[in-house]
């Protein structure tokens, strides 16, 4: 999908729907410094989506897609749930897996890609709901981490099964009552970030998607660590406004309220020593690049 690799045939350009012309002309494929700030000035890799109006998952999708370091060389693996309905509108290769199987599919895919494209970096990114990650797919999630598979797992944690009308999930808070879980949850929210750390993930973050620059940072870190070292895990709070009875414009505030220091989505991060070393190296390189750029701009002025 990189611009160099794919061009619309000139004789067909004028008949192509505008969004395809834009993807070739104005998307940020091939730009290794792409990020959330491109939103609004370039073609985003997501078209109209099928989520509820104001669903924070849509913000999360936009920030994540803007932050992938190499979307033209990335394959995303999804699972059934609200997220799966978005993937048909996404300008990144993606595979829909049977509910819960996403980390098994991603393991095979990552290995196959490294055999098929030796010497080329291919990123695999799983993006699934909490039901898929923690309940029905927990076996596949954990086994991939135990085996040190080199890909990133992202869980859109909305603390219930949203797509099927609000059933209890392992990541639901204790005591929470949902439309299809009327008794209220009787046990604590599963501590998956801690489990991820103990299972061998080298970079783990638990946060909300209220701040685009933070989402960009954690996505890039997670993908770079997965490329070089081993599994990484991001648990992102994307509240289901429909199931918790909020209005379309209240999703952002819900996330802000839940990320306060004493709340369950207060920023939490685990980084292995190996990953720390790599991230320090990458940060130094980025600093150097920015300084050189500044110098160059000053010279031009």
């Amino acid at each position: 999908m990189s611009k160099e690799r794919i061009k619309i045939a000139p004789e067909m350009f004028d008949i192509m729907p505008e969004e395809y012309q834009d993807l070739v002309e104005r998307a940020t494929y091939g730009n290794e410094h792409r990020g959330w700030k491109d939103i609004g000035t370039s073609k985003e890799l997501i078209e109209e989506h099928s989520l509820c109006a104001g669903c924070p998952e849509s913000m999360a999708f936009r920030y994540i897609l803007a932050s992938l370091p190499a979307p033209e060389d990335t394959v995303m693996v999804g699972s059934t749930g609200c997220t799966s309905l978005v993937f048909p509108h996404v300008g990144v290769h993606n595979i829909h897996s049977l509910f819960g199987n996403q980390n098994a599919i991603a393991s095979g895919l990552k290995r196959a890609l490294s055999v098929r494209f030796p010497g080329r970096v291919k990123d695999v990114v799983v993006l699934a709901g909490d039901g898929a990650t923690v309940d029905i797919g927990l076996d596949m999630t954990l086994q991939a981490w135990f085996r040190q598979e080199k890909f990133t797992t992202i869980c859109f944690d909305n603390e219930l099964y949203a797509n099927t009308g609000g059933q209890e999930s392992g990541l639901m808070q204790k005591g929470f009552v949902a439309k299809m879980a009327p008794v209220g949850k009787t046990f604590e929210k599963v501590k998956l970030p801690e489990i991820a750390r103990e299972s061998g993930c080298h970079y783990v973050v638990n946060c909300t998607v209220s701040k685009p620059n933070l989402v960009e940072k954690v996505i890039k870190n997670a993908i770079h660590v997965a490329r070089e070292i081993g599994p990484t895990y991001l648990q992102l709070y994307t509240p289901c406004i429909l199931e918790i009875g909020k209005n379309s414009m209240e999703g952002l505030q819900e996330m802000r309220d839940s990320e306060k220091p004493t709340e369950r989505f207060a920023y939490k991060e685990y980084v292995s020593d190996q990953a720390k070393e790599l991230l320090t190296e990458l940060a130094a390189k980025e600093k150097e690049r920015k300084a050189a750029l500044k110098k160059q701009l000053a010279g031009q002025a």
């Binding site: 794919i6 619309i8 045939a9 000139p10 004789e11 067909m12």
Partner: peptide, 18 residues
């Protein structure tokens, strides 16, 4: 297979289709 210029053959077909 012909809308994108994957290779010369595809591009040639696109010209012929037009």
């Amino acid at each position: 297979l012909v809308l994108w210029a994957w290779n010369e053959k595809a591009a040639g077909k696109a010209t012929a289709i037009r």
